[in-house]
Amino acid sequence: MELQPRTDRRIVIITHNDLDGAAAAASYLRIVGVKPQDAVVLFAEPYNVDQVIDRLTPYLEPHTTVAFMDIGFNSQSTPRAIDRLRSAAVKDLEVEWYDHHVWAEEDVNAVQKLGARLFVDRSTCGAGVVIRYASKLYGVEVDDFMNRLEKAVCAADLWRWDDPLAPKLFRASTSPPDTRNGQWKEKLVEKFFNGVLWDDELQARLEGYLKEELANSSAELKNSYSASSNGCVIASVVRDSDLPSDSILGSMLVSRAHANAAALIKRKGFRRVSLSLRSRGGANVQVIARRLGGGGHPRASGASIILPLHVALLGMISRKYIAKYVSQRLLEVAMATGACKSTADAGGQGNSM
């Protein structure tokens, strides 16, 4: 695919490690006319973006643009990442940030102090923010493929499911068991960059995923636990596998437990666990995640917590002890913040900051 280069700068992209992040990166590269092999594309989560910057800064070259995509503000990692970039001794370093998650005013100010161009639009997905605002920034007309890509990816990422390709892309974007996740996401970026929305390789991955999803989901749901108070129900489960995805298993758990929200728990050490929070509108999980130092948007957010020592020890005997603790902890936060009452998944107006 031949595109007219719109910049002679070195392009470094730090994007979310999911379908939306891959689509955002590919869209940006199409807009600036830089091939994936001529750019650096790194996948990250909001909670570890500072670690990515630490690995990156020694190799930054003069006249570089660092573009963050589909990465929300994390109260712990984002300030550290900003400090690293601010102190980087790189001539003519530019920073762009495209996101669709919830940003507090102080978060916006912190990023803008870096001199970054910040674009936040909650009415679309991360790829949509890139397509809408990077195209204006670089004076590029959005083509039919990018419009089609935005529609399919946003339908999956925002849980609207109003596009027939959305559930297929959502599942197929998960890496095959014999492929490194980052390598598969890089392949997705290349496909989308070249105008490929679906092909035989993605179809084969979809078929493999569906087999794994069916085999794993029933086994994992057996170890779930739910806690309730005043009509608010939080269900949790400790995960052993990456399949089905957190979003799909979370939807199953919400239905099975008649829950306002679900927490998918993964152990990141003896006491630290990561939480993927999912809701279908019964709770604003972004409010819960933010109270725990994480973030996201009303129906899909993430955070991490440290388990009490006794819970971590009991968790070695049965994972249900961990699920019970997390459900009760999140229920307390939900009740304290009114999250179960904040069910409106407000889109918000686009804005350039």
Rank of each mutant, 00 (worst) to 15 (best):
L3A: 02
L3E: 00
Q4H: 03
R6T: 08
R9D: 04
I11A: 07
V12L: 08
N17Q: 14
N17H: 13
L19Y: 06
A24M: 05
A24F: 09
V34R: 07
P36C: 05
D38S: 12
L42N: 11
F43C: 10
F43N: 09
P46M: 04
V52A: 10
Y59W: 12
P62W: 08
M69D: 11
D70N: 12
I82T: 05
L85A: 01
L85E: 02
R86H: 06
S87A: 09
E96K: 02
A104T: 07
E105Y: 08
A110E: 13
A110P: 03
R117S: 13
F119H: 15
F119R: 13
V120S: 10
T124S: 12
V129C: 06
R132K: 15
R132Q: 15
Y138A: 07
E150F: 11
K151H: 15
W159K: 09
F170H: 15
R171I: 12
A172T: 14
P176M: 04
T179W: 05
N181C: 07
Q183K: 14
D199E: 07
D199G: 15
N216Y: 12
N216W: 06
K222Y: 01
Y225I: 03
A227V: 02
S229N: 03
V237Y: 01
V238M: 11
S241V: 13
P244N: 13
S245A: 14
S255N: 11
A263V: 12
L264I: 13
F270R: 14
F270G: 01
L277R: 02
G281K: 07
G282P: 04
V285I: 05
Q286F: 09
V287F: 02
V287G: 00
H297Y: 09
P298S: 02
S301Q: 06
L307A: 06
P308F: 04
A312C: 02
L313S: 03
I317V: 15
A323F: 00
A323T: 02
R329S: 10
A336V: 04
C340N: 01
G348E: 08
Q349Y: 11
